[in-house]
Amino acid sequence: MEEVIRVLVVDDSAYVRKVIKQMLSRSPFIEVIGTARDGREALDCVAELQPDVVTLDLIMPNMNGVEFLREQMQRRPLPVIIVSIASESGETALEALDAGAVEFVQKPTALATEKVFEISDELIQKVKAAAQIKLSNLPTNTNNRITSPLVSKVSSGAVDIVVMGISTGGPQALSFLIPQLPEDFPIPVAVVLHMPVGYTEMYARRLNDISPLKVVEAKEKDPVTAGTVLIAPAGRHLSFIRQPDGSVLTHLDARPFDTLHRPSVDVLFQSAAEVFGDRVLGVVMTGMGSDGKQGSAWIKSHGGLIFTEAEESCVVYGMPRAVEEAGLSDKAIPLNQITTAIMGVL
């Protein structure tokens, strides 16, 4: 029988605390064992109640969410899901991920209205996933990491693009991996990272600051060129269009509407296979669910390569597991060896 997940809800709004408790209580496998009004009170509650998962607001008096995270992770690491508003706390949310938060859910509004209930299903799903997370696999302090980019070599032309799909644990894993790619990396990289709307541009800027490569949030009709990492914008699928002169441009679209995620790894991978044929390397990394499995099948059917992150380094072994179990992975690789493996097939 599934064990009940014990959750502490931290938010300075009494209304939001009540609503989150109501939402989580819809699941028979989740019990809200306490609430806290700020980070300082949350530290005491964690010590006393020993929750399995914490949901955390970021903007709070006395001690904010990031301060709580930094202190709590030193005391006893545990899975923390940010529940906040992008417009008010975007940079703070990225700091929270650096400090050890594993997921975030975007509040639809700062106001005490019924709209808050819209996040109910997503929050329940992410709390269940967070309870299974391997926190020891979460790369930390990636912004301060001194990385040693690999030495490049002239591309043999076997691969013309690297496409990556990643979710839970993704911001930290990419902040570890991308800075290791050399400045003269000979092909483009495109990434779908499951993030709420409002975060991908800021995240791309931060990743650009610590990487030899140019990292940008993809815009419509961006050229797909060597040495550039394109991050799909939250809320839009990223695909490719080959021009009559042979160059390739990005295309952003809300369609298809029937995907679980937007952007979708499957949409990116399928487009890469259709435009670049057998010269595609797809990399599926940590994350829950199975986004990327169908896209990996497209890449394989066109003769391309698929790498998956090995279970031993995944924060959540969901997306890579789905690809692996479908027999679509050419190689399962721990996070700290993925860049070397990518360089090995160029």
Score class of each variant (00 low, 15 high):
residue 2 E to Y: 12
residue 5 I to E: 08
residue 10 V to T: 09
residue 13 S to Y: 01
residue 16 V to M: 10
residue 19 V to T: 11
residue 21 K to Q: 06
residue 32 V to R: 01
residue 35 T to I: 11
residue 37 R to Y: 08
residue 40 R to V: 13
residue 43 L to Y: 12
residue 43 L to W: 07
residue 47 A to C: 10
residue 90 G to D: 02
residue 99 A to D: 00
residue 100 G to C: 01
residue 101 A to P: 12
residue 114 E to T: 14
residue 116 V to W: 09
residue 123 L to K: 10
residue 132 Q to V: 05
residue 148 S to R: 08
residue 151 V to F: 04
residue 152 S to V: 09
residue 157 G to A: 09
residue 161 I to D: 03
residue 162 V to N: 01
residue 179 P to A: 05
residue 179 P to S: 02
residue 183 E to P: 02
residue 184 D to H: 00
residue 198 G to S: 01
residue 210 I to D: 06
residue 218 A to T: 01
residue 219 K to S: 01
residue 225 T to K: 14
residue 228 T to V: 15
residue 228 T to Q: 09
residue 231 I to A: 00
residue 233 P to A: 10
residue 235 G to L: 14
residue 241 I to K: 12
residue 246 G to C: 01
residue 251 H to A: 15
residue 251 H to C: 15
residue 260 L to S: 12
residue 262 R to A: 00
residue 271 S to R: 06
residue 276 F to E: 08
residue 277 G to F: 12
residue 277 G to H: 08
residue 285 M to K: 06
residue 292 G to N: 05
residue 296 S to T: 11
residue 302 H to C: 10
residue 304 G to M: 09
residue 305 L to Y: 02
residue 315 V to C: 07
residue 317 Y to H: 14
residue 325 E to D: 15
residue 325 E to N: 15
residue 325 E to C: 14
residue 327 G to N: 09
